[in-house]
Design a protein around this nucleic acid. Structure first.
Length: 694
DNA sequence: GCGGATCAC
DNA sequence: TATGGTGATCCGC
């Protein structure tokens, strides 16, 4: 007997993508209403470009991988003498125990605030040039880093190439980035935030997390009043508006700050039931760590909202490896980290530089680019007093395929550009000839020269070491002076964490438009190519799609522009007859899906998303039938072992399947609260590109 | 240790 | 005509 644990057929991929056109992924404030028309314009403008082709291929590979995963999502139940319902019941019981355990860890004692500047770059530009007021404008060149709210009404968004933005909004004004100004203004704003929490954590230049518990206590302030006061202060001192979310943890606060954007705030009730109600209809895309790929992955088994996590917990349990059950259960409960602390310098893991340019095939010119990058990296490494043991070269072909090549050393890598260039060249030369559009260098296995010096003997010794090192002591001293003047107390950047942290290039890196376009494209030949690609992975242990990059692959030499299309074509040729994947079926509610695959499940554990009250009763270990597993505590011990064995072997199969789509580590970490800790605590104390310009 | 992939900002 | 840069981590090898 076979039990289907996946529900791929119920959600046609093309529909999934098309739905995203106007779907919840595009919930940015100030968006235009007619998303369909916007997407048509974007698709029109993009069609035929290499970028578009590349994204199309990526989309197909994703679909194929998801499809493969779902095809492998069968569990052989013949080893069990019982019916599948027993298994499901047990799984749900197991998950319920997990939920109870998680619920017990919930901490509502801290007041966490996520602050987020509204259209930060655009607002700063507006500050400096009032004539822009009321006009639709974008910031950036080539690619927009942000758009004014007027421009957003036309569908102009961050990450959009300006030529497309102009098509959507012919009157669009485009102004250049002024990173220096953003850094400056950002510092002002962060200084204000720090009055409320000196330990606040800046997350990029336009947002941050604060714990205002203490401030509220000391000033006898309600959280809402405190945050309102803080926002007023920012407005008064900088003329900028900021939105904020108030919640018991960072994840919730982040989601809340989006609720009343722009220039608003939202406080979530500090109550378990209210939080779960809040999460139930929340799109999974809002969860930190769930990007475009994971969204699709989860949608493929019918999970679109955090509430769906609960109703699909049996599936998720069986496919824990793929989905990260623990993370998702926490998300469903609205549980996450509430630890707010500034990023630490020692947390840094790598430092690098990369540059995009119009495609170059000429070797000498490529090497010249490499040298530029090496120079930039030298600057940043010396500026931050970093070195490391591994150098990674990154290059992207004109087809937008990216590759990396790395080399490790037993000694510390010299920070001199000549040496960086030489190693980089060594890595690059065997790959040529190629037509490249990007080159980058990155150093990992870092060593913090400052910490080293400090622990050794303090400032004097540091001075001597600087003098002995192969870099200019004069230069180093000057840079250090700059940083100390900025308020830094030595190596720890707890004070200024943000100082050198140039913003991410964009306010948001989302560009779902392309997926949308590709979704439209899915109606034709692409979908039919999928089954073949999927089955091709079956024939040996290796999961290799025709289009997939091979591990350690050598990039195609001077790949003709059509090479990928050729691959598609050949893949189509071996494809089996069109499968059901793209067969549009009426899309019914998720729990219906669930029922159809888990006969009896609804009766046993309730396949529908439970009402909040019901959940609570469930979690409190009450008498709700859903929680009383008919198997647990009795004969299940034996079965449990078998069951686990089965799961293990399933997991092993999954692993050998080389699935490409996995949740990020932070969401799979056992025990620790989910957290975008990585993001939140991440400090980028040194050498951001923008800084090197001044 | 290396390379591909995903994600956040 | 034309689609970014920095950093982190996981997995399979």
């Amino acid at each position: 007997m076979w039990l289907r644990v996946a529900t791929s057929q119920t959600i046609p991929e093309s529909e999934t993508l098309v739905r995203r056109l106007a779907g919840p992924s595009t919930t940015k404030a100030g968006l235009a209403k007619d998303q369909t028309e916007i997407n048509r314009v974007i698709a029109e403008a993009s069609k035929g470009s290499k970028f578009y082709e590349a994204r199309t291929n990526i989309c197909m590979i994703s679909k194929a991988s998801i499809s493969e995963m779902l095809n492998k999502g069968w569990i052989n139940l013949s080893v069990f003498p019982f019916m599948d319902i027993v298994i499901i019941a047990h799984i749900c019981c197991h998950d319920t125990r997990k939920l109870v355990k998680l619920e017990a860890q919930r901490d509502l004692s801290q007041i966490i605030v996520h602050v987020d500047m509204d259209a930060f770059y655009a607002s700063v530009e507006l500050l400096d040039d009032p004539t822009l007021d009321g006009k639709p404008f974008g910031v950036g060149h080539g690619v927009l880093t942000t758009a004014s709210y007027e421009a957003r009404k036309f569908g102009v968004r961050s990450g959009m190439p300006s030529f497309i933005a102009k098509k959507l909004c012919p009157d669009l004004v485009v102004v250049a980035n002024n990173f220096h100004r953003y850094t400056e203004v950002s510092r002002q704003v962060m200084d204000i935030f720090r009055r409320y929490d000196p330990n606040m954590c800046a997350a990029g230049c336009d947002e941050g997390y604060l714990n205002i518990t203490r401030y509220c206590n000391e000033h006898q302030l309600a959280a809402n009043d405190c945050v309102q006061q803080m926002r007023d202060m920012v407005r008064a001192e900088t003329k900028l508006t900021v939105s904020a979310g108030i919640a018991p943890n960072k994840m919730l606060a982040k989601i809340c700050s989006d609720k009343n954007k722009p220039n608003g705030q939202f406080k979530l009730e500090f109550d378990s039931c209210a939080i779960k109600a809040f999460m139930r209809n929340m799109s999974i895309r809002k969860l930190p760590g769930v990007g475009r790929v994971n969204e699709r992955l989860l949608e493929s088994i019918g999970i679109k909202t955090c509430g769906d996590i609960y109703s699909h917990r049996a599936t998720l349990s069986l496919m824990d490896k793929q989905f990260g059950l623990n993370f998702l259960l926490q998300a469903y409960l609205g549980i996450a980290s509430n630890v707010v602390q500034p990023g630490q310098r020692e947390e840094r893991k790598s430092i690098g530089a990369e540059r995009t340019f119009s495609p170059i095939g000429d070797q000498a010119k490529i090497l010249a680019k490499l040298e530029e990058v090496a120079t930039e990296l030298e600057h940043d490494m010396e500026r931050g007093d970093w070195t490391g043991k591994t150098l990674t070269l990154k290059f992207k072909l004109d087809t937008y395929q990216a590759f990396t090549r790395a080399k490790s050393f037993t000694r510390w890598i010299s920070t001199k550009k000549e040496d960086l260039f030489m190693i980089g060249k060594e890595l690059l030369m065997p790959e040529l000839p190629l037509t490249l559009r990007l080159i980058g260098l990155r150093v990992t296995k870092l060593k913090d020269l400052r910490a080293d010096v400090q622990s050794a003997a303090g400032g004097i010794k540091r001075f001597f070491e600087s003098a002995q090192s192969n870099s200019s002591p004069r230069k180093k001293r000057r840079l250090n002076a700059d940083e100390e003047q900025a308020g830094d107390e030595g190596p720890s950047l707890t004070q200024d964490g943000f100082e050198d942290a140039m913003p991410g290039y964009h306010e948001h890196a989302d560009s779902d438009e392309l997926d949308a376009q590709i979704g439209q494209l899915d109606h034709s030949p692409l979908s039919s190519a999928l089954p073949g690609m999927t089955t091709s992975s079956e024939h040996d242990g290796q999961s290799q799609f025709s289009l997939q990059k091979q591990p350690h692959a050598r990039p195609p030499h001077s790949a003709p522009a059509s090479s990928q299309n050729t691959a598609v074509a050949s893949s189509s040729r071996v494809a089996k007859p069109v499968s059901t994947i793209s067969n549009p079926k009426p899309q019914s509610a998720c729990h219906t899906t669930s029922n159809s695959f888990y006969p009896g499940l609804a009766a046993t554990v309730g396949a529908e998303v439970p009402a909040v009250g019901a959940t609570d009763t469930a979690l409190s270990g009450g008498s709700v039938q859903a929680q009383t597993c008919p198997i647990c505590g009795k004969t299940i011990d034996v079965d449990n072992r078998e069951f686990n064995d089965t799961l293990t072997s399933v997991s092993a199969r999954k692993r050998s399947g080389k699935l490409k789509f996995l949740l990020p580590y932070s969401h799979r970490r056992e025990g620790t609260s989910l957290t975008h800790e990585r993001q939140l605590l991440k400090e980028r104390p040194e050498g951001i590109r923008g800084d090197t310009d001044f």
